[in-house]
Write a protein that binds this DNA or RNA. Structure first.
Lengths: 184, 184
DNA sequence: ACCTGAACACCGTTCAAGT
DNA sequence: ACCTGAACACCGTTCAAGT
């Protein structure tokens, strides 16, 4: 019984988390699996596709049951879930953000965000705008936080970490803007 | 008379704009300058530093005299200037955003954004929060727009471009949130 | 000071051949 | 179907040697 695609993605995620994105090479992954580099191309067409699959898996593992009932609570919950999922793996923010940038992986979170905003009674074009705005904030904040965390763990405490408080406050800022438009 | 550091950065920017980031290798740049790859290391310690210098140069070339007098107008102006600078060169958004992520290059725009927000009468911690929020929006939107532009020019019209309208509307959303706090 | 030439230690990907 | 072995066309970076 040989490897399947899921085994490759699973092991790639382990290598990513332990050694970081720059060490996640096809050759390195192959040797980690005790196989020739060329063997990987039977399970995955190229590295880019593998990275997209890794991004999807990171998000899948970060899914939690939703609890909030109000639209704004759901937005905060969804953004927080996305943020936590990215931060749960080393270089996770960069991997997920890059996959999103190139339109790879299905943007599940975007749709669920859109639904929540729609339920908030926002007009369709504002729903689209707000969805993108929140996604940009989540990616930006997660990337910044992950960089700060790695800099800190490397001994160089360069910049203010920011932390989860800043994240929530940033979301609230946009939510205030939206609320100001729904009941002016 | 041989090359100086500025010549290397200048030529690198030309290669970036014409062939894209993935083609901007030290070896390619060297051959473009008619020189051995090793010669570049007399002007720049490594590729990362070169990319940071390129990011700085992109921003420097995008600077315009400021015209707005009100704090919120200055925020929109500064964000627009940053966005336009990034979009003026192929893969410019990715280069500048990456340099910012790793804390390379001096974040001139961040300070000027902070000043504008301070003049708006916001409390110090909200100034910091809003500065980061706007930067995340600019990077996110510019990256998305640049990817869409390249996809469109490659023939594959994948996603809604968004455009400058969406950008301004996204900024206004956050500004509304800030205004709601300055005069509640 | 600036550059050459050669090397080191890697990459992603392809493809004929094996089982 | 899945993998090996070998190759192709590259990378970033270092360093002794030349001018």
């Amino acid at each position: 019984m040989r490897y399947h695609r899921a085994d490759i993605v699973d092991r790639a995620l382990a290598v990513l988390d332990e050694y970081g994105l720059e060490s996640l090479t096809m050759r390195r992954l192959a040797s980690e699996l005790g196989v020739q580099p060329s063997a990987l191309y039977h399970h995955v067409p190229n590295k880019q596709t593998l990275l997209a699959a890794i991004a999807d898996e990171i998000l899948r593992r970060g899914r939690r049951p939703h609890r909030a009932t109000e639209w704004d609570g759901r937005v905060v919950e969804l953004c927080g879930q996305l943020r936590d999922a990215m931060l749960a793996y080393r270089d996770g923010a960069e991997v997920v953000a890059t996959a999103h940038t190139f339109g790879l992986g299905r943007d599940d979170t975007a749709d669920r965000l859109r639904d929540a905003l729609h339920d908030g009674g926002l007009p369709p074009d504002l729903v689209d705008l707000a969805t993108r705005t929140f996604l940009h904030l989540v990616f930006g904040h997660a990337t910044e936080e992950q960089t700060a965390l790695q800099a800190a763990s490397a001994g160089a405490i360069d910049r203010d970490p920011g932390g989860p408080d800043d994240f929530d406050r940033s979301l609230e800022l946009v939510l205030d803007g939206l609320r100001a438009r729904t009941h002016p």
